[in-house]
Nucleic acid binder design. Structure first.
Length: 493
RNA sequence: GCGGAAAUAGCUCAGCUGGUAGAGCAUCAGUUUCCCAAACUGAAGGCCGCGGGUUCGAAUCCCGUUUUCCGCUCCA
């Protein structure tokens, strides 16, 4: 990482905190690792990003509908999805080789070796001890066993082990007043399952015909071993996901289409296309038959912002098996090859899944500029967030040029008119230039100044964030001028 | 998780070999000015991340801990 990009990232983080975009969670108590809160402008920006996504996905596609499923779900769902078995392992690290192993697998290997060597007594004893320890979730005991049986790192060969730790990516809690294993439920580690388990409800109640999609925006939780780089990897984060249900055999086409559609969504914001790239997964997850990430070049390198995955019929099949409910869809359309309807099948799924917090950070980094405005006479600079007007937290700020002569009253009158349509700020403190710069720092695209001429002919000046140029316009035209610029039409057309 | 670095005002940082806590910007009140960081006057803001230890005395030295950043590792 070069020094300047490193600086950029730090400056964005400082800026985000200083101007009320992102704060460390629980900061007065020293913060909580990898948890962040959105401040007054951050919340607005985040909501605008959500709106852009929701409109582009749900409103603009008549075959996609949106839902909002609960964070708590039946625990069996996570068994069906593979999350329970995939992510609750006792792990141990070797301090010399820095390799991490599953503690139970190291012991299993040892048992096998005892068996091979004819030491069946030892094998049985160890098996018994291990089962006991696993059952009781006695992690110190697992380490004792590893030490007792002199198990060495298969790669490094040393026995310099850390303690055994339970790695479970899912947060768990108890439902019901009595703490009992049977009542353990999880905070969802992804929003996708909320869509899969509602697939039948939506399809039937909405009379949806394949191909169709279900979209959702919501929080997900992962107990990451390490979480760093600001809001790139958080323990509580927000996803915007869409699962698109298609006829088996057509998944490739749809996959390619969504891959392109989603990148276009990003580029419509005016981001430099060179900052984006696709990354193809070569090692596919157990559920996928194709997977691409859309990556963005953050100051610390390319990072995944969005994933487009072809999930086959894995999830719906699993839920059919675990729930005992049929997940099939009857497709009445006639197959030209056979001349008969396609009939019953479990749909294949194309998933688009974007990390909202990452999108937020991307937007901030992309918009952030420390512009040098120095002239020969004096040094000058400004910090400006060049946010797309649709995403800007505050659409316009209204300033009376001075605090006297009835200008504040006039300015407030205009604000009261505009605030019905737009998020507006009013400021009368400090010199006009300073107020302009303050608004630049939070990305407000327009500043409207009420001066003495306003009282005579009802015109105001409008000053543009990006060019810093000013224009005199009729106050009555403001709704149209601002409205045109912040209209979602600019992004969705 | 391992290794490295850091933590002092809202932000950026200074604070020497231990001896009363500092600056710039920002904030608030006022005067003045008025179209791009104005000036002046005044004010507020600090458990020097937290806990222990050494010391007559710790922001400063030592130990622990929390949080953050960097590298590895991890991320179905």
């Amino acid at each position: 990482m070069s020094k300047s990009t490193d600086e950029l990232f730090k400056n964005v983080i400082s800026h985000a905190k200083e101007y009320g975009f992102v704060f460390p969670s629980s900061e007065i108590y020293d913060g909580l690792s990898a948890v962040y809160d959105y401040g007054q402008f951050g919340a607005e920006l985040k909501n605008n990003i959500k709106t852009y996504w929701w409109k582009a996905m749900v409103q603009m596609n008549d075959n996609i509908v949106g839902i909002d499923s609960a964070i708590f779900m039946h625990p069996k769902i996570w068994k069906a999805s593979g999350h329970v078995d995939g992510f609750s392992d006792p792990m141990i690290d070797n301090k010399d080789s820095k390799k991490r192993y599953r503690a139970d697998q190291l012991l299993e290997d040892k048992i096998e070796r005892y068996d091979k060597d004819g030491k069946t007594d030892k094998a049985e004893q160890l098996q018994h001890d291990m089962d006991e320890a696993l059952k009781n979730e006695d992690l110190p005991r697992l380490k004792e066993l590893i030490l007792e049986h002199e198990i060495a790192d298969p790669i490094g060969g040393t026995r310099n082990w850390t303690d055994v730790r339970q790695f479970n990516l899912m947060f768990s809690t108890q439902m019901g007043a009595v703490a009992d294993d049977a009542d353990t439920i999880y905070l969802r580690p992804e929003t996708a399952q909320g869509i899969f388990v509602n697939y039948l409800n939506v399809q039937k109640s909405g009379r949806m015909k394949i191909p169709f999609g279900i979209a959702q925006i919501g929080k997900a939780f992962r107990n990451e071993v390490i979480a760093r780089q600001f809001i790139i990897r958080m323990r509580e984060f927000e996803q915007m996901e869409m699962q698109f249900f298609v006829r088996p055999g057509t998944q490739k086409e749809w996959f390619n289409q969504w891959k392109e559609t989603r990148l276009k969504w990003h580029l419509a914001l005016g981001t430099d296309a060179a900052k984006y790239r696709y990354h193809e997964h070569t090692k596919l997850a157990h559920y996928a038959d194709a997977a691409y990430d859309i990556e963005f070049e953050f100051p610390f390198g390319f990072k995944e912002v969005e994933g487009i995955h072809s999930r086959t019929d894995f999830d719906l099949s699993q839920h059919q098996q675990f729930s005992g409910k049929k997940m099939q869809y009857f497709d009445p359309e006639v197959d030209p090859e056979t001349g008969k309807p396609y009939g019953n099948y479990i749909p294949y799924v194309i998933e688009t899944s974007i990390g909202l917090d990452r999108m937020f950070l991307l937007t901030m980094i992309n918009a952030f500029e420390e512009e040098d405005l120095s002239t020969e006479d004096k040094q000058d600079s400004r910090t400006v967030l060049r946010l797309h007007p649709c995403l800007a937290p505050v659409k316009a700020a209204i300033f009376p040029l001075t605090k006297k002569d009835g200008l504040p009253e006039k300015a407030r009158e205009i604000m009261d008119r505009l605030k019905v349509d737009f998020n507006i700020q009013y400021e009368e403190k400090d010199a006009i230039g300073k107020r302009y710069r303050r608004q630049d720092a939070i990305g407000t695209p327009f500043c409207i100044t009420v001066d003495h001429q306003t009282l005579e002919d009802d015109t105001v000046t409008i000053r543009y964030r990006d060019t810093m140029a000013q224009e005199r316009v009729a106050s009555a035209d403001l709704e149209k001028i601002i409205g045109d610029q912040v209209s979602w039409r600019n992004l969705l057309k």
